[in-house]
Design a protein around this nucleic acid. Sequence first.
DNA 1: TGTACATCAGTGAACGCGCGTTCACTGATGTAC
DNA 2: TGTACATCAGTGAACGCGCGTTCACTGATGTAC
Lengths: 206, 206
Amino acid sequence: MPKRPARKSAYHHGDLRNALIQAGTRLLRHVGLDDLSLRRVAKEAKVSPAAPYRHFPDKHALLAAISERGFHSLHARLEAARAASPGDLDASGQAYLAFALAEPETYRLMFTKNVLCEGEPPESLQEAGRQAFQSLVATIAEGQASGRIARRDADQLALGAWALVHGVAMLIIDGALDREPYNQLPPGHLLSACQAIFREGWRTLP
Amino acid sequence: MPKRPARKSAYHHGDLRNALIQAGTRLLRHVGLDDLSLRRVAKEAKVSPAAPYRHFPDKHALLAAISERGFHSLHARLEAARAASPGDLDASGQAYLAFALAEPETYRLMFTKNVLCEGEPPESLQEAGRQAFQSLVATIAEGQASGRIARRDADQLALGAWALVHGVAMLIIDGALDREPYNQLPPGHLLSACQAIFREGWRTLP
DNA sequence: TGTACATCAGTGAACGCGCGTTCACTGATGTAC
DNA sequence: TGTACATCAGTGAACGCGCGTTCACTGATGTAC
């Protein structure tokens, strides 16, 4: 009874909730977060401005749903990286960055709290975020188990790795690295350089 | 002839350009970037909605000026940290974070490109950003000169240090760390933990 | 299988709002004589 | 020192716009008989 195929009467859409999330994601790609309005998403989905209210209580809820789907994509990429290179923290970081740069405005949305909700974020969104983060944690645990990663506090390692890659991603997305000497290198190399320091440390050895 | 003292006729303000930048900074603190409009800034400065156009060609220019002042403040904090602890990269990072958390919405503005301008950012804003960044670079140079920081590529060290602290700052500002176990620690400790890894490295030693 | 009907996902017009920006104006200022 | 005047930083009303949201409605759907 649910899960109607997309092709129906054109009056009843059949899968509008999903279509709105996809339309929103597409608009993020093409017009950006600042110009994303409920009305534009409705238009992109070829539906009247009031139609989204059948599926989302308000604009925040739609944005939260788009963001949630973003976290699922991110999670999928991290899991793929983990499957390909278990315990390889640098590979996970590169996969993370690849997502952020493939969908920069979705990524920005995912980390812009006030736009996603007023007050507490919906539980399902929080859960999606936790899931993606857990993938990072799992990589670290694997790395520690195999002896490649030192047995430091895993929460701290996860935070550090996350902050580093998030920082690089945001700096690139916001254009802060569009200048000498950083604009001479592809993003993956910029991250690699940061990862090398994070792996080796910057202190002088005795 | 320029630099009129603030108290004049109340019709001619005397120093409106500055007053607008301050009013904007105050509003960022109290209502946030999303609700910052030219009209609100004018109102906060007790001036008509058209008055700002005597000093800024458009809204972007006012925001860029606010942002520029933000970079000057950040630069001042970094220089103070450097004077107090030359060559201490961790101290610089803490000073950086302190600024970001003291003025979170100004900080967010400073790194939100599309809001600051369309197309190229104004030269003076870019220069202010470079200046702040150079303070970090100088700290690294000092640290290398005194032998505390390894003689790696300084550009890479600067990028890594910047990305790490920017990442931590953004994650905190956007509420991504408002959950277990990270919400149990003050921001400075979270950063310290990340800095420890960045300093020592996470690899296992032979 | 065929028909009557309740459901509810959509429509489209309308609302009030705050926005960035413009325009003709006003009146305080500092300068020239 | 005193007055006429050009300058230009402000005013306040107005513009057109797109926004989020509401409402009474319409018509396709699936179900009960």
